[in-house]
Design a protein around this nucleic acid. Structure first.
Length: 356
DNA sequence: CGGTACCCCCGCCACG
DNA sequence: AGCGTGGCGGGGGTAC
């Protein structure tokens, strides 16, 4: 699953979508790294997908816009160390003023607002540089309190507002006090909103299937519709009548050992088999059986990592008919048999790889 | 490891 | 016609 070669190839590919994550002093590190991981994961999966296809076909397959990977980069007020709210420093590749090349997506991480704004004002011209980059970018996004920077740059209500896709759900604003008062809550909420947001952007770029794969890859099981509500029209159009399917998805996640055949699932939501399969694929970007199997593999993987249940217990516990069936599905989906998880030889599924 | 029965998925078309 | 739905068939893959 982890393939440094494919990742490097994706980064050196011509004209990737360049994604900048801006981390000001006082930023929440998870607001920074959450989106970072999502976009990195997307690039890895795209590279793998591309390789799979090029194996079957001859070379020269036209690379469409949709397949462009991301090149993610951390930027700060200047190159080098960035103090974060958690005192875990990050390292910016360059300063915002040094950004001269075309940018696809600019992400402003949230954090300690007072510290962030103080840092901005301490650096003359920084705000102007920020505005310049933001206005050149295809889209600008803020995570959590990163929206304060957008607001003070005048980017939230100007004539350019239509250029911007800002993550500014009312829900988020209301929770501000909680962030500053209770460290436990703000970090988890901040991280998940940042990742949800990035997932939604990836979905806009590449479709729901890839976004879902990343979500599963990073063990982010629950998609939060709140983050989608603020995003692009193509997304909102889809969120019309998804509820039964989404509820069913969580049912699958919580009850992998149930009978989850297509006919059983269709009956559960009161649809015909044919139409259910269609709706499922439309809403979740994946066929029902594939989703069920992926869920079972993931559930099994977690039990293998934490716990000492036998292969037999795990296999039947997550709904596989036999140990052998589980093993085959495991190899097919992760590239390694279940035994590799126990011996620690498999790829870390949610590992952080922030280095470029 | 191989065979076969089964399941899934998708194109197609008929229906309202 | 335009749209969503449901049934059918085959072929491809998988479980046992």
């Amino acid at each position: 699953v982890y393939d440094a070669e494919a990742m490097a190839a994706s980064l050196t590919r011509a004209n990737p979508r360049r994604v900048l994550v801006l981390a000001l002093p006082g930023a929440f590190s998870l607001d920074v790294l959450g989106p970072f991981e999502i976009f990195q994961g997307a690039s890895r999966l795209l590279a793998l997908h591309r390789r799979e296809q090029s194996v079957g076909e001859a070379q020269g397959a036209a690379s469409t816009q949709d397949e462009l990977p991301y090149q993610v980069e951390l930027v700060g007020t200047r190159a080098g160390k960035v103090e974060t709210a958690s005192d875990t420093p990050l390292y910016a590749n360059r300063g915002i003023a040094q950004v001269r090349d075309p940018i696809d997506t600019l992400i402003v991480a949230g954090g300690d607002v007072a510290r962030m704004m103080q840092a901005v004002h301490a650096e003359p011209g920084l705000m102007a540089e920020f505005k310049r980059v933001a206005q050149a970018a295809r889209r600008v996004v803020s995570v959590g309190t990163g929206s304060f920077l957008l607001a003070s740059a005048g980017l939230l209500d100007g004539k350019h507002a239509d250029m911007l896709q800002t993550a500014f759900p009312a829900l988020h604003v209301e929770r501000e006090p909680i962030y500053t008062q209770d460290g436990n809550i703000y970090t988890s909420a901040g991280a998940s909103t940042g990742m949800d947001l990035a997932l939604a952007l990836v979905r806009d770029d590449h479709g729901p299937e890839l976004a879902r794969k990343i979500a599963r890859w990073l063990v982010l099981y629950v998609e939060r519709p709140a983050s989608q509500a603020q995003l692009g029209a193509p997304l909102r159009a889809q969120t019309g009548d998804q509820k039964p399917i989404h509820e069913l998805a969580t049912f699958i996640l919580e009850n992998p050992c149930e009978n989850l055949s297509v006919t059983a699932l269709a009956a559960r939501v009161g649809m015909s088999v044919r139409n259910f399969a269609r709706a499922f694929r439309r809403d979740l970007g994946e066929t029902p059986a594939s989703y069920v199997e992926a869920t079972r593999v993931e559930a099994a993987r977690r039990q293998l990592e934490h716990g000492s249940a036998s292969m037999e217990q795990i296999a039947t516990g997550v709904g596989f008919g036999s140990v052998e069936t589980m093993r085959r599905a495991f190899v097919r989906r992760t590239g390694a048999p279940p035994s590799a998880v126990r011996t620690g030889r498999s790829a870390p599924v949610a590992a952080v790889s922030a280095a470029i």
